[in-house]
Design a protein around this nucleic acid. Structure first.
Length: 425
RNA sequence: GUGGAUGUAGCUCAGUCGGUAAGAGCACCAGGUUGUGGCCCUGGGGGUCGAGGGUUCGAGUCCCUUCAUCCACCCCA
């Protein structure tokens, strides 16, 4: 194989798919702006340390999935594996908190993780997400969840499940961690070797281990929800109360542990059931310590991120969305070099009036050019033939009605514009 | 990283026991209509059968290696 192809786990988004992408992106933007979130665009690579410090040293993302490289200045850089850390970095660096006690930001961007690809998992994928920085209010958590779910329902997705948990804070989580360690101490020999490791580093991870043996051992494991400190407990109760009041259905899941270390209190995930093994459409939660951890002043925050590829998979599975077919306003049929010269002039004028038009560049016959015009969905064909050209005329053909008439060549631009204006109010 | 499946035309796929099988449909191009699209008919171009090696008189077919894709594990979006 001599020719090149895309790198493992990456894909071209072809013209026929781009329409659907744009449609989704537009809906996402509209919804986020309706919730008063402002778009931010950060670089796709950052200093490696930003991610290793925020996501957590012994997470899978940092441990084995990051695209890390050195530049010529010997800096260690990393392609963004997720969106929160860069946004928080931008928030701190640009002192965005100085203007307002609360800042609400969103992004749509590619992310990179070096995992083995499978259904719904790629090495370059796309996420949209929001970060609401500055509020401790449970109502803010609920707004974030409402927005996340709102985008899905606006796009017509069914059969989603919202799973909720609280992962505590720096006060109650260490205590719970010890509770877990004690509970597991006697059963440690029955756990898988990953979980033995987790027992030391991060016993919370044992909760979502899928090994049957571990599941069995942890059947009656104590959950974080039952060991929250008064503050976390009150916060989580309020979040649930507000969700219920808004008729947002959810299920409590004591095993829900997000894969990133920075989460505190509220954690949630949206699952599809229409996807394969990778069934998470999106997830998020609160990260009240992250901003301080990254050098900002202590500031609470909550956000979520969602995968666009997975959303598109569910979308095309549940219902086939109407993507506007490609279409041209006009195709200029040229017969001969002189006609081509005139055509180029006409095309430039029309195009600069934003009329979508094209002509033949591969020397096709009249018949083939009309066939092309038809296939491209052109509403009109302007036929410039040698005979008409000598008389300063051209033929304007309505492709739908199969009717045509001769018009003056130097009035053709105006004539086309007039007709298009009449047909599309 | 690990396991399973699959690689034949731009796309979806046939290809018998190893023996003139390099094939179909769609798409593309041309002609049927000397200058008029869609439908129809006829014809045409396009393939190092993923790559490399081996067995054999002979390999798309069997063996080995390798690469890629898909699915799954781990974990996540």
């Amino acid at each position: 194989m001599v020719s090149f192809q895309t790198v493992k786990g990456t894909h071209d988004i072809l013209p026929e798919e781009v329409g659907l992408w744009r449609c989704v992106e537009e809906k996402v933007r509209q919804m986020m702006e309706a919730y008063n979130y402002l778009e931010i665009r950060t670089p796709i690579f950052e200093h490696t340390e930003l991610f290793s410090r925020s996501i957590g040293q012994d997470t899978d993302i940092v441990g084995k999935e990051m695209y890390t490289f050195s530049d010529k200045g010997n800096r260690s850089l990393t392609l963004s594996p997720e969106g929160t850390a860069p946004v928080v970095r931008a928030y701190i660096q640009n002192n965005l908190g100085a203007q307002s006690p609360q800042v609400k930001l969103f992004y749509i961007a590619p992310m990179f993780r070096q995992e083995n690809p499978q259904q719904g998992r790629f090495r370059q994928f796309h996420q949209y997400g929001i970060e609401a920085i500055g509020s401790l209010d449970p109502a803010q958590d609920v707004e974030v969840i409402t927005l996340a779910m709102g985008i899905y329902s606006e796009l017509g997705l069914q059969k989603l499940s919202l799973r909720m948990n609280s992962v505590g804070c720096r006060i109650c989580r260490p205590i719970y961690r010890d509770v877990l360690r004690n509970f597991l101490k006697s059963r440690i020999s029955a756990l898988c070797k990953d979980c033995v490791q987790r027992h030391e580093e991060n016993p919370l991870r044992i909760l979502d281990c899928k090994e049957p043996a571990c599941r069995e051992q942890t059947e009656d494991i104590p959950f974080m929800i039952d060991h929250l400190c008064p503050e976390c407990s009150r916060h989580f109760a309020k979040v649930q109360e507000l969700l219920s009041q808004l008729d947002v259905a959810y299920v409590l899941d004591g095993r829900l542990v997000r894969g990133l270390d920075y989460y505190t209190k509220t954690a949630f995930e949206v699952l599809s059931g229409e996807l394969g093994a990778q069934d998470a459409l999106g997830g998020g939660g609160r990260y009240d310590d992250l901003i301080e951890m990254l050098g900002g002043s202590p500031t609470p925050a909550v956000g979520f991120a969602a995968g666009i590829e997975r959303l598109l998979m569910v979308l095309s599975r549940e219902k086939r969305p109407r993507v506007s077919p490609r279409s041209l306003d006009l195709f200029v049929v040229v017969l001969g070099d002189d006609a081509k010269k005139v055509a180029l002039k006409v095309l430039r004028q029309l195009r600069h009036k934003l009329v979508r038009c094209d002509t033949d560049f591969v020397g096709r016959s009249l018949k083939a050019q009309l066939r092309a015009a038809n296939r491209l969905g052109a509403r009109y064909a302007l036929i410039i033939g040698e005979e008409e050209l000598h008389r300063g005329k051209a033929i304007l053909r309505d492709m739908d009605k199969s009717q045509q008439e001769e018009i003056d060549l130097n009035e053709s631009v105006q004539e086309v514009c007039d007709r298009l204006a009449r047909r599309s109010p």
